[in-house]
């Protein structure tokens, strides 16, 4: 069994590893170097400028605006999504509701739509005159708005779409976690006189906490991105008036519109450290003792 072992191992690894090294590892490594240059895409002319790009990032109003918008998304999107998903999952899985499966199937739909479909769809849901949202509001006697045209509303409109498309996935995730909670624990809490809300917060939440953590990391990463939905849906894109500018969009524009590849790479490096910091923060800050289920 040992003969021709090494040739076999090498044969299985060589193609995937080459592909991975050339297209993934080397670009990631290059990005850290490019971030320290003023490279504009012409091969010979790349001056080493040290940390200049990073200093300029902090003076760039577009970067700062994008950073602010990403920060707002980082605060709003994960919390809104997790709270909604927890609530819906609890209502579905703890009440032994008939037809819960159907709800779950329907809630999951948006997860299957590509971000382009969602972006284009909601661009028209938000259209002032013939859009669905204002149509519904008119029916209720509320005056419609120009959702994506008003700088004070546009970012909220974008965040609502992100939440809309994410909730279903986490409902399914949380439902699976909640269904593995032994019924006796919940019944014991109910007999002790705990209200439904108390049971949810004091008993259920600690038992599904690991899944909530995972949700926060994934949603946080989605909130730091937001590129595709903003690029497709908003005016400009990133407008009106930079109201929906996100870091990914600033990076993309600096690289592929202005040709400032060194500067864009610096932005990429900054984005990497933000993502890393977020993951560490969530894992550290929300650490709790593992609850063992009997």
């Amino acid at each position: 069994m040992r003969h021709r072992r090494l040739p076999f191992i090498a044969g299985f690894l060589v193609l995937p590893l080459t592909l991975y090294a050339v297209l993934v590892l080397s670009p990631y490594a290059q990005a850290f170097y490019l971030a320290l240059t003023d490279w504009r895409g012409v091969s010979a002319r790349a001056e080493f400028v040290g940390a200049d790009n990073f200093a300029r990032l902090l003076d760039d109003p577009q970067v700062l605006g994008a950073l602010k918008n990403n920060a707002v998304m980082l605060l709003v999107v994960p919390i809104a999504t997790v709270v909604l998903a927890l609530f819906l999952a609890a209502a579905l899985s703890l009440g032994r509701r008939r037809g819960a499966g159907v709800y779950r199937v329907v809630y999951f739909f948006p997860q299957l739509l590509s971000v382009a479909v969602v972006g284009v769809l909601f661009q028209f849901v938000y259209t002032p005159n013939s859009g669905l949202l204002n149509g519904v509001l008119n029916l209720l006697g509320i005056e419609g708005r120009s959702w994506l045209g008003d700088p004070s509303l546009a970012l909220w409109a974008v965040m609502a779409v992100v939440v809309w498309s994410a909730v279903g996935f986490y409902v399914v995730l949380f439902c699976a976690a909640m269904e593995s909670i032994p019924r006796e624990i919940l019944e014991a809490a109910a007999i002790d006189g705990a209200s439904a809300l108390t049971r949810l917060i004091r008993v259920v939440l600690p038992l599904v906490w690991e899944n909530v953590q995972v949700a926060f990391i994934y949603l946080g990463m989605a909130a730091l991105d937001g590129f595709a939905i903003v690029q497709i849906m908003t005016v400009g894109p990133g407008g009106p008036d930079n109201a929906t500018e996100v870091l990914g969009l600033t990076l993309y524009r600096n690289a592929f519109t202005y040709g400032k590849f060194g500067y864009a790479s610096a932005l990429g490096v900054a984005l990497f450290f933000l993502t890393l910091a977020l993951a560490v923060l969530v894992l550290r800050g929300s650490r709790r003792d593992r609850v063992e289920m009997a």
């Binding site: 590849f261 932005l267 990429g268």
Partner: peptide, 19 residues
Amino acid sequence: FIAGMAFPLFLALVPLFFV
């Protein structure tokens, strides 16, 4: 391979384009 999951795609985008 595991490390590849920790990096945002945006970081690789510019060098990847040239590769």
